Amino acid sequence: MTRSTDHPTTLRVHQYLGLQPGPRLIVLGAVHGNETCGTQALHSVIEALDRGHLTLLRGQLTLVPVTNPLAYRGHAREGERNLNRKLVPPAIPQDFEDRVARVLCPLLQAHEVLLDLHSFHTAGAPFVMVGPHDNQGLLEPFAHAQAEAALAAALGPALVVEGWLETYAHGVERRRAHPVTVARAAPDPQFGVGTTEYMRACGGYGVTLECGQHGDPQAPVVARLAVLRTLRLLGMVGMAEEMPEDGEVGGGAAPTPTPHTVMCLFDVIDCEHAGDHFSREWASFDPVRAGEVLGHRDDGRPVVSEVDGWIVFPNPRAQVGQEWFYLARASDRVL
């Protein structure tokens, strides 16, 4: 693909290096360009650090407010493709996101912990996405589930979602077998690898925090508090009294423990025709009952939930071959 001459040519990174050894944390905003809550939050944290209201005591802190500058400039989810799919450092970049990946992937490799800040297009409560239990499987081997769960529990939101990559891989297999969507199907399960999956593959751990709906004025607040709580959990910062609204995140009392609801994604349903439509306006984490009609195919066939659970990531604007919605059920994981 020919590179446009007016594309951004740099990735701006803010890095703070403590004089005492400690964790290496990286925080990303605007991996998708229309998800700006993380950008706003990180600019606020940078200002607090630069003004001395927040002090890095140890370790390495790297902040990337705008991870996809092309998408961000266009206020779009993607520049030339979705940066958060099949994230690898390509030998020969084919598009803008490939060029970002060649810089971003080594940056992730140099850290131990990742917090990736996102938002979503439909209404719903903030939630955290975590990886698998510790395992030595082929899809997503992992050895830091306990540390990752502790991070997820500290961020604030009560909803925690697991099962992303396994469910995505299941969707890939289904698309390969479907005559309508096979032409648009992702070529392999690794297409589901984004920032956190790449981080785990490099030996670290990380979570995705979905801070709220795009444009929700509370979403940057959720994102900012999550950054501060992560820094506190890792013992990396001290905080001045000039930040009273965040006093509970500094050297004072810890936040009140949150009772968490942990759910596991287990199925993904694709849009098969432009006429597919939902039975009503769904929001992520709306509860569904076994046998409940969630939508209809273009020819009138109902699409029903097979179990009691929740609908997740409903996308009424999904294109043919794209994920229409996910289904989740209760998880046995305890944070």
Results as ranks from 00 to 15, higher is better:
Pro220Asp: 06
Val221Ala: 05
Val222Pro: 10
Val222Tyr: 13
Ala223Asn: 11
Arg224His: 10
Arg224Ala: 00
Leu225Asn: 12
Leu225Cys: 01
Ala226Ser: 14
Val227Met: 11
Val227Leu: 10
Leu228Ser: 01
Leu228Arg: 07
Thr230Leu: 05
Thr230Tyr: 08
Leu231His: 07
Leu231Asp: 05
Leu233Val: 06
Leu233Lys: 06
Leu233Phe: 07
Leu233Met: 13
Leu233Ile: 04
Gly235Ser: 05
Gly235Thr: 05
Gly235Lys: 07
Val237Asp: 00
Val237Asn: 00
Val237Gln: 14
Gly238Ser: 15
Gly238Asp: 15
Ala240Phe: 03
Glu241Val: 09
Glu241Thr: 13
Glu242Asn: 08
Met243Arg: 14
Met243Ile: 11
Pro244Leu: 02
Pro244Asp: 04
Pro244Gly: 02
Glu245Arg: 13
Gly247Leu: 11
Gly247Met: 05
Glu248Thr: 08
Val249Trp: 07
Val249His: 09
Gly250Pro: 03
Gly250Asn: 04
Gly251Glu: 13
Gly251Tyr: 04
Gly251Asp: 14
Gly251Lys: 02
Gly252Pro: 06
Ala253Asn: 04
Ala253Ser: 10
Ala254Trp: 15
Ala254Glu: 15
Ala254Asn: 08
Pro255Lys: 09
Pro255His: 09
Thr256Asn: 04
Thr256Leu: 15
Thr258Arg: 15
Thr258Val: 15
Thr258His: 03
Thr258Ser: 01
Thr258Met: 14
Pro259Gly: 01
His260Tyr: 09
His260Asn: 03
Thr261Trp: 09
Thr261Pro: 01
Thr261Gln: 14
Cys264His: 15
Cys264Ile: 00
Cys264Ala: 12
Cys264Thr: 13
Cys264Lys: 14
Cys264Asn: 13
Leu265Trp: 13
Leu265Ala: 14
Phe266Asn: 15
Phe266His: 15
Asp267Phe: 02
Val268Ala: 11
Val268Tyr: 00
Ile269Lys: 08
Asp270Ala: 12
Cys271Phe: 01
Cys271Gln: 12
Cys271Trp: 00
Glu272Cys: 02
Glu272Val: 02
Glu272Ile: 04
Glu272Trp: 07
His273Pro: 01
Ala274Gly: 12
Ala274Pro: 02
Gly275His: 12
Asp276Met: 06
